[in-house]
């Protein structure tokens, strides 16, 4: 019964139209997510790559990213919002801060995961630090970098829902507003749409993650997989 009501809510034209309809809210939601991801990327990617390449600050950053995991999103959101006032500023800052650790971790662990013998060979051939980074470290680190981006993106999409509590316009409104008036079809419908968006985002990044594995490396993995499954 709840499903039927949810379905009819989801398929009703009135749900989708207007300035507070699903269409506009999805647009706002995706735009906010993209903005957050780009901001976090601009800060964390260069820093992470630099840490991976040079090894500087590694311990500090590892401790930082570990501690950040336990930092409650909702606490950060509400505190910043009281401090900075209403508007996009507080959630944008909070979500950017929370999206930095996965990107940072992906970038530095990606560069560090490159076989040190390969890096040594690059130096021995007479590559400069930059050439080693560009020709060896970056392409070989790409899958882990994207994997860090992926978890940041997934986290951002999930957390903008929570930000609706502040209150912020976007898809999260259906959950928070629906809850306030016990409109379960609206809550469930909004939740389902967000789940679909989240799975699509996750899937797209998963594809990208596969696509950036260099051909020679893919072949190597294929072989390693074949031998290990035979060994079992």
């Amino acid at each position: 019964m709840i499903y039927e009501r949810t379905w009819s809510w989801l398929t009703a034209a009135s749900t989708w139209q207007g300035p507070q309809g699903m269409g506009v809210r999805t647009g706002i939601y995706l735009w906010d997510c993209l903005l957050t991801l780009l901001l976090a990327l601009a800060i964390a990617l260069p820093l992470g790559l630099w840490i991976g390449h040079t090894g500087h600050l590694r311990q500090v950053v590892v401790a930082f990213t570990g501690g950040m995991r336990a930092l409650p999103t909702l606490g950060l959101l509400t505190a910043l919002s009281l401090w900075m006032g209403l508007g996009l500023g507080a959630p944008l800052l909070a979500l950017t801060v929370l999206a930095i650790p996965p990107i940072l971790a992906g970038a530095y662990s990606g560069v560090e995961s490159v076989d040190p013998r390969i890096v040594d060979a690059c130096h021995a051939m007479g590559m400069t630090g930059w050439q080693t980074f560009r020709m060896a470290e970056l392409p070989l680190a790409a899958p882990l970098i994207v994997s860090g981006l992926r978890s940041a993106a997934v986290q951002i999409v999930a957390t903008w829902t929570v930000a609706a509590y502040l209150p912020i316009e976007g898809l999260g409104r259906y959950l928070i507003d629906g809850l306030a008036v016990h409109n379960y079809p609206e809550m469930l419908g909004g939740s389902l749409v967000i789940i679909v968006i989240e799975l699509v985002v996750d899937g797209l990044f998963a594809l990208l993650e596969r696509a950036v594995v260099a051909r020679g490396v893919r072949l190597e993995r294929g072989m390693a997989g074949a031998t290990s499954s035979r060994a079992q």
Binding site: A158, T161, Y184, M187, L192, I194, I195, E198, L199
Partner: peptide, 14 residues
């Protein structure tokens, strides 16, 4: 893990 917690909290009971 990709499913948002708030959405799941609302969708699961039903």
């Amino acid at each position: 893990y990709a499913i948002p917690s708030l959405s799941l909290l609302i969708a699961l009971p039903s």
